[in-house]
């Protein structure tokens, strides 16, 4: 990306979980995009991608939310988010409308512009100027939607390879679901719990000190389990590490300077 070129107009899809639980992921995503020469905006009219309704069989609500999201991101060259699952949902919008519904074409158009952050940096921008440093032996969990719906596998690893002082220690079964599954984890807590137990035992066996991933839902699930089991493994979203924004305590960790809610 040369300074002379016109910046790429990107709309950030924040995702509800990042909005509510970990804003730093949103800011890290913006920083990475800006480093890569993008002009980033955060459309006000966005809410949730609609996945809870979609996966509960409420097609009507999903369509309403889809239309709203499509409109909110009209006019951006790209729509980028720090989640394979939510961006994958944006891709599913095309399945919601009939062939002759004008929204179908708009959904297709959104799909062609919507990318998960690591895949956007790697596949679209061919960006790899990662200047951050992170002292850790990390392991990477491949979240399902990113991996199987969007083909996110090598991209995060390529980017992590550029981070100074970081070594990657792959866990067994990194591609196996962690048991989060959105509403699944509350509808089938026993099964979800067993799945995340299997996951954390693979994480622990990898000998990593940090668990990284690209989807906050899964990370909350795994971090919550690691905490409950008393493991000292830090959990972070990959963009925090790539953007060098790791001052923030890891997911589920206490504030360093025990302050009042900000």
């Amino acid at each position: 990306m040369h300074a002379s070129e016109k910046p790429i107009k990107v709309g950030l899809f924040v995702t509800c979980l990042v909005d509510m639980f970990r804003p730093s992921i949103g800011f890290a995503t913006i920083k990475l995009l800006e480093n890569a020469g993008c002009k980033v905006s955060v459309p006000e009219a966005q809410t949730c991608c609609g996945q809870p309704a979609f996966n509960s069989g409420d097609k009507k609500s999903t369509q309403d939310i889809a239309r709203q999201t499509i409109q909110a991101f009209d006019g951006y060259e790209y729509v980028v988010g720090p989640s394979g699952s939510c961006i994958g949902m944006l891709h599913h919008y095309t399945e919601l409308f009939d062939e002759n519904d004008p929204w179908k074409a708009r959904a297709e158009d959104l799909k062609s512009r919507a990318f998960e952050i690591t895949s956007f940096l790697t596949d679209v921008l061919d960006f790899n100027t990662i200047l951050s440093k992170y002292d850790a032996k990390a392991t990477y969990h491949d979240s399902c939607a990113g991996l199987r719906e969007l083909g996110v596998k090598q991209q995060p690893r390529k980017l992590l390879a550029k981070v100074a002082n970081l070594t990657l220690s792959e866990m067994e079964e990194s591609e196996t679901c962690c048991g989060f599954g959105g509403t699944f984890c509350v509808k089938y807590p026993d099964i979800s719990n067993r799945m995340v137990e299997n996951k954390t035992s693979n994480i622990v066996d990898s000998g990593a000190t940090t668990l990284l991933g690209g989807d906050l839902g899964c990370l909350l699930n795994m971090a919550g389990k690691l905490k409950r089991q008393g493991h000292k493994i830090e959990t972070r979203h990959i963009v925090e590490v790539l953007a060098g924004m790791t001052d923030e305590p890891a997911i589920g960790d206490a504030d360093y300077e025990l302050g009042q809610p900000a």
Binding site: V186, A223, G252, P261
Partner: peptide
């Protein structure tokens, strides 16, 4: 001050088996 929650009313499905990491600061928006 803890960074995670051990028990949340009505969310036993989650907190029976794992902690709930707490939000970091105000919402992104």
């Amino acid at each position: 001050k803890k960074g995670h929650i051990k028990k949340i009313p009505l969310a036993g499905g989650w907190t029976d088996g794992r902690d709930m990491p707490a939000p970091r600061g105000k919402t992104f928006m």
